[in-house]
């Protein structure tokens, strides 16, 4: 097997696995930059995956090949609505952010499986007929070498994820909204003094993170698992959170980390068919994202520091 052939297998598969992580990690950035810790990302992905699959199964006749894309929008809305629960608990009810996130995770799996049984009368849904399928990107696929590796047999969602990451970077670092979002997460009292509505910004941060988590779940379910069951989302949300931390709460960093974790995930699955990689026990690749995150936090590869006010409540008038 030549290097070219290996790359033609590994690169599209890496991007396939990375896309949902990129979306969800970007969501995590909105929430954490506003100062609300969101370990409910996993649950938000579950909600996104569930609503996308249900929509896809129900409306595939009506919308045809556009179904998966519309399902992403539906999942986005569902994730955003579900995340309001976390926002209300963590911001208005002053619940511990981590505990509320745990509740979101528990609630999402319970609720979605309950609904699956209610709607379909069995433990998992059917397999969708129209998911995201492999495409060759027009024009770009004809570039010599690069075209073959990056733009053939690949998925639109992977490129959408990269474009969105760049947009998010622009929003968070180059717009007034982004500045306000970050200031609320770093020093809410100073932001409040300058007339920024801390509560509103934090609500927005959490709800946007819900929308992105929903998209992440929808992309994962419609391109990788193709149905919804209790094991559809198993740790992707936490891995996205790891990507966010490993990328130091920066959209492009998180994207890079997510692509790397996507690589590790895809290698642990397709590695056995590749030369020299099959010698490595897959357990190393499976645990790599988590171990690397711990090492990153410890500061061996440049310290990763969370936004200063993350996890704290802002109570007007208290010092």
């Amino acid at each position: 097997m030549s290097l070219m052939e290996i790359l033609m297998i590994v690169v599209p598969s890496t991007l396939l696995w990375a896309a949902p992580l990129v979306f969800t990690a970007l969501g995590g950035i909105f929430s954490e930059r506003s100062g609300v810790v969101n370990i409910g990302l996993e649950g938000l992905m579950v909600v996104g995956a569930f609503s996308a699959i249900v929509f896809n199964l129900t409306f595939v006749e009506t919308f045809g090949s556009w179904t998966p894309w519309i399902a992403i929008l539906v999942a986005m809305v569902a994730g955003a609505i579900f995340s309001i629960l976390h926002a209300v608990a963590a911001i208005t009810f002053r619940a511990d952010h981590t505990v509320s996130g745990v509740a979101i995770n528990l609630l999402s799996t319970g609720l979605t499986l309950f609904l699956v049984k209610l709607i379909y009368d069995k433990g998992e849904t059917n397999i969708i007929s129209k998911g995201f399928s492999k495409v060759d990107i027009p024009l770009l696929k004809d570039i010599p070498i690069i075209g073959k590796i990056f733009f053939q047999n690949t998925y639109w969602t992977s490129f959408l994820a990269i474009v969105v990451a760049i947009i998010v970077w622009y929003i968070v670092f180059k717009t007034p909204f982004g500045l306000r979002l970050r200031s609320v997460g770093e020093h809410p009292m100073a932001a409040d003094t300058m007339g920024i509505n801390v509560t509103k910004m934090r609500y927005l941060g959490v709800i946007i993170s819900g929308a992105f988590g929903g998209i992440g779940g929808a992309v994962y379910a419609q391109s990788i698992t193709s149905n919804f069951s209790h094991s559809t989302i198993s740790g992707q949300g936490f891995m996205a959170m790891a990507a966010m931390i490993f990328g130091k709460w920066h959209p492009l960093g998180a994207m890079g980390a997510a692509i790397f974790f996507g690589f590790a995930q895809s290698i642990s699955i397709i590695g056995s068919s590749l030369p020299f990689l099959k010698e490595i026990p897959s357990v190393y690749l499976l645990i790599a994202p988590y171990v690397l995150t711990i090492i990153a936090l410890t500061g061996f590869i440049g310290r990763a520091d969370a936004p200063k006010a993350s996890g704290t409540h802002y109570i007007k008038g208290s010092r």
Binding site: A95, V99, S100, A103, I104, L111
Partner: peptide, 9 residues
């Protein structure tokens, strides 16, 4: 999950 949610709140 709801009990956790309400205890947290």
């Amino acid at each position: 999950a709801l009990i956790v949610f309400f205890v947290a709140s």
